[in-house]
Design a protein around this nucleic acid. Structure first.
Length: 469
RNA sequence: GGCCCGUUCGUCUAGUGGUUAGGACUCCAGGUUUUCAUCCUGGCAACAGGAGUUCGAUUCUCCUACGGGCUACCA
C-alpha cells in the first residue's frame, strides 16, 4: 500500500435512519475515495448508548447498500472500542493534558442559563489533595482537556483556511461522568487508528475541527486533511430535517427512484462536474468528482429536479433492469403475464414514466379493464350518446381486422376516419377511454395491439353499455 | 450573547477587473404528437446593500444586512 493512498470514512450515528444529508456525505466520501483509488470505511458512532439502536444501524447499512455505496472492511463499531479509549485517557491524565472536573451537570447548566456560555475553569487547577478529597467523597467527575492559549488553524479543502482562537475553545469534556468518551474524543482516536487521511463531513462540524486538531496534537497523532460539505436545506433555508417531511433514503426507494438517479441528484447538490452536463452515471461521477468543485453554500433540496433527473435516467436505463427494479418494490406487478409482454409495456412507458411507481400507476389497463372512466376525459372524449353511434361503427371496423397488429390497426382506423369524414381524434379519444379509462398514454394503436382483439372488443362493448354516464 | 461560515434568476449552478452575466429545474407561450409524455423553439427571472481600490467592478478590500452552523456529560 503506497504511502499516499487515500482513506476516508463515513461515520453515521445509529440514532435515526439514514437521511438525505447523511446519504450525500456518504456519497461524497465514496466518490472521493473511488476517484482517488482509495478506500472508504464505515464507522458506527454508537457511544450514546441510550439513543443508539441496532435497527437504525441495519437501516443505514441497508440504505447504503441500496445506493451502491459499498464500503471496505472492517466495519467499526465505537461501542467495541471503549477499552482503547481508556488507554489514551490514562496517558493524557498522566501528562496533565486532561484533568478531572467535579462540576455537576446542573451547576454547569445554570451557569449557562445566566449567560456564561463557557466553562469557568472551576476544576482546572485543583490540587492533588483537592482531587483526592473529592474522589474519596465519591463525587462523580468528567475528564476535560486542558486547552492552552493560542490559535489553531487548518486548511479546509472546501472552505479554505480557517483560524480559531483558543479563547473560543472550551476545556471541553472528553469523558462523561459515566466513563463513556464523547464524540470529539472518539472520532479523533478512531480516525487515527483507522488511518483516515481525509475527513469529509458536514459543515456543522467546522467548529468541532479545532477541538479535534487540539486532541490530535495532545495525543501526538498526525492531523488528517479536512473537507466540510455544505448543508442540504429545506425550502425555508434551514437544514433539511424530518420537519420538512424529508424522509429516510428508503422512502425514495419505495417511491420508485433508482439509486443512480438519487446519487446523481445528490451529487449535483453542491457540486458540478465543471461542464454543463447534469445527467451522469456512477462511473462518470467517480471519474469527474473533485472536492475543489464543491460549493460552500447550502443547497435547497428540490424534489422536482430530482424527479426530472429520475426521468432522464429512466429513459436511458436498460428495460430488463427496470423490470427487476419494479418487481423489487412491487413483486406482484404484472403477475401472470409473460415477461415479454411486461418488457414491451415498459418499452412503451419508458419515455413517460419518471419513476418506477409511475410504471405501475400507468400500466393498470394493460392487465385489467378500467373500472372507472376519468371524468374530465369523458367530457372531452365521450360527452353524449352520439359518440356511441360512432363507436359502434369503429367496433365493426375493428372486428374485420384479421391480422391484429399495430400497423394494420392504424391503417384500418385511419381509413375509417377518412371514410366517415372524421378527425382521427374523434375516433381515438373514445377508444382510448374505453380501453384505458383515461385520455393519456402511449399510442392507442400500440395499446390495442398489446391487449389483443378479443379484449379490445370486450372493453369497447362494456363502454358502449356504460357510457355516456 | 460569543465565535465560525456563507450570500449570482424562485431553486441548482457557470462565470470574468471590461460578457447582451451562460446553462439546468420549475413556470408560461408556441411547434411536433390521435392524447399524455418526450422532443424542438421562444419567454419570464439574478450578481443582498453601502463604502473603498480602479479608467472600469458581479469579480479585489472593508463595513452593514440577511441566512446558516456551533456554542451539550448529542453525534
Amino acid at each position: 500500500m503506497s504511502h499516499s493512498s487515500v482513506n476516508v470514512r463515513f461515520a453515521p450515528s445509529p440514532t435515526g435512519e439514514l437521511h438525505l444529508g447523511g446519504a450525500r456525505t456518504a456519497l461524497f466520501n465514496w466518490l472521493y475515495a473511488k476517484n482517488q483509488g482509495g478506500q472508504i470505511f464505515l464507522r458506527i458512532e454508537d457511544t450514546d448508548r441510550t439513543r443508539s439502536k441496532d435497527e437504525y444501524t441495519d437501516q443505514i447499512l441497508d440504505a447504503l447498500q441500496w445506493l451502491g455505496l459499498n464500503w471496505d472492511e472492517p466495519l467499526v463499531y465505537q461501542s467495541n472500542r471503549f477499552d482503547d479509549y481508556k488507554v489514551h485517557i490514562a496517558n493524557l491524565l498522566n501528562s496533565g493534558q486532561v484533568y478531572r472536573c467535579f462540576c455537576s451537570k446542573d451547576e454547569l447548566q445554570s451557569a449557562r442559563d445566566e449567560g456564561h456560555y463557557q466553562y469557568p475553569g472551576t476544576c482546572r487547577n485543583l490540587k492533588d489533595e483537592g482531587v483526592k478529597m473529592r474522589l474519596n467523597q465519591g463525587i462523580g467527575f468528567t475528564y476535560r482537556i486542558r486547552i492552552s492559549e493560542g490559535e489553531t488553524h487548518y486548511n479546509d479543502l472546501i472552505y479554505g483556511p480557517i483560524t480559531v482562537d483558543h479563547n473560543e475553545v472550551d476545556d471541553f469534556i472528553v469523558v462523561r461522568s459515566d466513563g463513556s468518551p464523547t464524540y470529539n474524543f472518539t472520532a479523533v482516536i478512531d480516525d487515527h487508528d483507522m488511518n483516515i487521511t481525509h475527513v469529509i463531513r458536514g459543515e456543522d462540524h467546522i467548529s468541532n475541527t479545532p477541538k479535534q486538531i487540539l486532541l490530535y496534537e495532545a495525543l501526538g497523532f498526525d492531523v488528517p486533511t479536512f473537507a466540510h460539505l455544505p448543508m442540504i436545506l429545506g425550502h425555508d433555508k434551514k437544514r433539511l430535517s424530518k420537519r420538512h417531511g424529508a424522509p429516510g433514503v428508503q422512502s425514495y426507494r419505495d417511491e420508485g427512484y433508482l439509486p443512480e438517479s438519487l446519487n446523481n441528484y445528490l451529487a449535483l447538490l453542491g457540486w458540478n462536474p465543471g461542464t454543463e452536463e447534469e445527467i451522469l452515471s456512477m462511473d462518470e461521477l467517480v471519474q469527474k468528482f473533485d472536492l475543489s468543485q464543491v460549493q460552500k453554500k447550502g443547497a435547497v433540496w428540490d424534489e422536482k429536479k430530482l424527479h426530472w433527473v429520475s426521468g432522464q435516467h429512466m429513459m436511458q436505463t436498460n428495460t430488463d433492469f427496470i423490470l427487476d427494479s419494479i418487481r423489487s418494490i412491487s413483486p406482484n406487478w404484472g403477475k401472470g403475464s409473460d415477461i415479454s409482454y411486461l418488457i414491451s409495456i415498459i418499452e412503451l412507458l419508458k419515455q413517460r414514466a419518471k419513476s418506477l411507481t409511475e410504471f405501475i400507476t400507468q400500466s393498470h389497463y394493460f392487465f385489467q379493464a378500467p373500472s372507472v372512466y376519468d371524468s374530465a376525459g369523458l367530457k372531452r372524449g365521450w360527452p353524449d350518446d352520439q359518440v356511441n353511434d360512432r363507436v359502434e361503427g369503429i367496433k365493426s371496423t375493428l372486428q374485420e381486422i384479421t391480422i391484429w397488429r399495430k400497423e394494420d390497426i392504424e391503417t384500418v382506423l385511419k381509413d375509417h376516419a377518412t371514410e366517415h369524414e372524421l378527425g382521427i381524434g374523434k375516433i381515438i379519444m373514445p377508444i382510448r377511454l374505453a380501453i384505458s379509462g383515461g385520455l393519456s398514454g402511449p399510442s392507442v394503436f400500440e395499446i390495442l395491439a398489446h391487449l389483443g382483439k378479443e379484449e379490445t372488443l370486450n372493453r369497447i362493448e362494456t363502454a358502449l353499455k356504460e357510457l355516456p354516464q
